[in-house]
Amino acid sequence: MIETIDLHKDYRIGKVLFPALRGIDMKIEDGEFTAIAGPSGSGKTTLLNIIGCLDVPTRGKILIDGTNINELSSRRKAELRKTQIGFVFQTFNLIPVLTAYENVELPLVLLNLEPDKKKERIVAILEEVGLGEFIGRRPNEMSGGQQQRVAIARALVKEPTMVLADEPTANLDSTTAKEILALMQELNEKHGTTFIFSTHDQLVMDYSRRTINLRDGRIVEDKRKPKGPR
């Protein structure tokens, strides 16, 4: 479970102090499929980065399963990212010199898995995201949708407790975006992995079961619905 208590984050741009988050209090249960929505500048990426141990809050607490992650050393944070958290980025961020298979393999380099088990996992997850035939391709030989599928496979291959996706569909056309969302929803249900997105895309909000609306660094709305469209 992720819990934030009075989370603040200020950015200093030149001499101006810019408050990105102004007191976020929320709880996200394990296995949720949650969108953090809002216009650009509302603080959603900042919130995701803080949850993902990539950034630190100026004030307030963030607890993951009861642990205040602010108090962790950067090494422990890296450890947490290595085992618990998968990232999906707007720009996919695949390593261009590596094939789909190798990109997915990358997070596992850090974990001590047996080679056979590793290979099994990579092939399985690539098949799950529908890229069974593309494992030998490099990013520049794949479409945007395929690249994002590789990125999702890469986020999930280490079997994390949560996947954080920052604007995962922003660089995709709407058809592809729907496919990607459907895929993530399916994976969420199947693996029970917590998915948290940031988005300003209505489509993503339609798919999510819970939408937390941010504006100017504050939660303005937190609505839940039983299940998104399939």
Binding site: L80, R81, K82, L110
Partner: peptide, 16 residues
């Protein structure tokens, strides 16, 4: 640099 950021997000340490 963005690639380095991605690797760090994955949990790659500076030494790696």
């Amino acid at each position: 640099i963005p690639e380095i950021g991605t690797l760090k997000a994955m949990g790659f340490t500076n030494s790696r």
